[in-house]
């Protein structure tokens, strides 16, 4: 998993410590701690995982093993406007693949990547439960339904690119 090098400030380290402590540093709460930390930092770079491991008394390799197991956790910062394409079955049979291809083409990034200007990141998710609107695209919290490849350019332009 590729990562980004960061230098943590003291207050950030203390924040992470407080998350770990809030869960009593119990090993069974690792996933909850990771959730909490990712919601604060937006992603889980290696340095953050080290702080967590150290505080909770876990091997870093174990924390990394858990982070890389779950697709919700990421070591790369998401874009300012994270774009998620639903590739659940209902969206797939209604053409989500073509929509995804168009986003890749327009943004010139692959799934899991963030555009060079940090504006957009692209990811896939499985079924958001809006199958009536298939295919569905999410930009941040906003949902776009019945998206066709032709709509992609317009959606991106809404965010000023």
């Amino acid at each position: 998993m590729s990562s980004v090098k960061v230098e943590l400030r003291k207050d950030q380290i203390e924040k992470i410590h407080s998350f770990c402590d809030a869960f009593n540093n119990a090993h069974g709460e690792l996933i909850n701690v990771l959730h909490k930390t990712q919601s604060e930092f937006g992603y889980l770079p290696a340095e953050v995982q080290e702080v967590i491991a150290d505080r909770m008394g876990l091997p870093v390799a174990k924390v990394f093993g858990v982070v890389t197991f779950y697709s919700f956790f990421t070591m790369i910062p998401k874009g300012e406007f994270p774009i998620s394409i639903c590739t659940g079955t209902a969206c797939y049979v209604r053409g989500a693949e073509n929509v995804l291809a168009e986003f890749k083409k327009q943004l010139n990034i692959e799934v899991g990547e963030t555009s060079a200007d940090g504006k957009f990141s692209l990811s896939c998710l499985r079924c958001v439960g809006a199958c009536g609107l298939a295919p569905v695209v999410l930009v941040g919290d906003k949902t776009y339904g019945r998206v066709a490849p032709d709509d992609v350019k317009e959606i991106i332009s809404e965010y000023g690119s």
Binding site: M1, S3, A46, P59, V60, A61, K62, T68, F69
Partner: peptide, 28 residues
């Protein structure tokens, strides 16, 4: 109880490795 190695990633890409798939030298 050294904790240098752990299963990382998932599925076809799962493998046993030190943290961040770095070299052993950077591990415990």
């Amino acid at each position: 109880t050294v904790g240098a190695l752990n299963a990382v990633n998932r599925g076809f890409h799962a493998v046993v490795a030190p943290a961040f798939e770095m070299n052993l030298e950077h591990s415990p």
